[in-house]
Amino acid sequence: MFPFSFEWVWDLGHLVFHGALWYALSILGIGLAYCILKAAWQTARGEEEGHGHP
């Protein structure tokens, strides 16, 4: 999973596989962080327009 495990090789297979994996994970992580931080900010500012559904 990481370049320091001994079976790691810098070949195309590893780059494509882990590239796609970390890409997907980053999208999820960033998206989630955005939602949580924005919600915290809105709560702190006392905004009130959120009603669950968009």
Binding site: A39, Q42, G50, G52, P54
Partner: peptide
């Protein structure tokens, strides 16, 4: 309030 905002943002 936080949950309401969170659900909305998600």
């Amino acid at each position: 309030t936080f949950f309401r905002h969170l659900a909305h943002n998600m």
